[in-house]
Design a protein around this nucleic acid. Sequence first.
DNA 1: GTGGTCTAGACCACC
DNA 2: GTGGTCTAGACCACG
Lengths: 123, 123, 123, 123
Amino acid sequence: MNIIISNTSDKPIYQQIFEQVSAQIVKGELERDFCLPPIRTVAKQLRISVITVKKAWEELEHRGFIYTMVGKGCFVAPLLPGERATKRDELVVEKLKKDIEYYKGLGLTLPELIELIRRYYGS
Amino acid sequence: MNIIISNTSDKPIYQQIFEQVSAQIVKGELERDFCLPPIRTVAKQLRISVITVKKAWEELEHRGFIYTMVGKGCFVAPLLPGERATKRDELVVEKLKKDIEYYKGLGLTLPELIELIRRYYGS
Amino acid sequence: MNIIISNTSDKPIYQQIFEQVSAQIVKGELERDFCLPPIRTVAKQLRISVITVKKAWEELEHRGFIYTMVGKGCFVAPLLPGERATKRDELVVEKLKKDIEYYKGLGLTLPELIELIRRYYGS
Amino acid sequence: MNIIISNTSDKPIYQQIFEQVSAQIVKGELERDFCLPPIRTVAKQLRISVITVKKAWEELEHRGFIYTMVGKGCFVAPLLPGERATKRDELVVEKLKKDIEYYKGLGLTLPELIELIRRYYGS
DNA sequence: GTGGTCTAGACCACC
DNA sequence: GTGGTCTAGACCACG
């Protein structure tokens, strides 16, 4: 499990963690029932507060990416490949709708938008 | 000039105002040297504080969308059509880079992303 | 008598007028007892409020550049060439002290400052 | 970090703060990543409103002198020595152009101006 | 009338 | 604890 924190980003740290861990789950990089490291360990490694890690874990559980067994730890939820794709699309579409609204609001046409995305998507 | 405030949005009010007014300027809906309504008037109409409007106006001036004449009011900056497009692209690209980063992080390929955008762009 | 107003300047209009008229007086471009045009005339020509012109005239009188004869108009004060130079230096030194304080505060050495002035003084 | 407020100055308080703190940064007196005191603390010490301090901090961040980590504090931006000089010159030239315009308007020649500066620059 | 500045005090998100 | 946002209300400079 890999997490990289950016202190200069405008995103809250707990959200950065949520996004990276959930991404690894929907991509299948973390197998079902994989035991996440204890929050205190994660906090130490990332040099952040335990509370911040807790908040990210809570969000992950709330969205169904992990489940908690009290006293034992947190584990990756068992998702079928199809469910994984569904969850990913949930995340994507939720954000995509807002984004498109913004770009349309600025008068950007569909071809213009796609052109810009091709340019900045990179590799 | 149209401004609609959403109190349920997670975006701060002043930013909602900034986005909507700047959008109308780059789209050419507000002509150069058009005199914006006094901040007190806008505040009353939107039922928000004068200071919140002022913060939006400040950001607009700061980004070069409007200019202020103390005692007279605030006016739409004179932008050449080319400058308008440039400013629009500034706003778009600034956000687009972050968005793409997010979608790539979720393992979305370029074709998948474009496909989803086509679907949700709508009319 | 020449006055040019800049609406984009951050200086108040009345101060722009004061600076330009006082400059013409200390440079001897306006002779002693020259009758300034009525404030209403100036206001019309510059397309500004009478009140603004009045404020500039008051400041000029306060600083001894002009004198008022009620019902007749405002006139350039009689200044000997030496007095003109003195008044000019008053204006210059008053501002210069503050400016130098600022530049010194930024750690600018005297040679650096002179070098920059040579560069930007232009013609 | 030292800040001295003058209530008799015609400059707004937030600008006085901005000038003094930015000066200390470009002079290298505040090291990169130095944590500025909390705005509430500064406000108490200077006996001014939190908001006034915040406005100064915002301007500092906006001009790239500091960066903010929400919940942690505000920190001096990491500037290379060359960047520090560049930023200083930005501040200097911005003001210098206006000043020179003023002195030229009063008929002051370049040698006269330099002579006066030498006299008043002091130590 | 306009915008510019400042105040005191509040609630929130984040850590 | 930190900064981020918003409020109501005041006084000033400018026109």
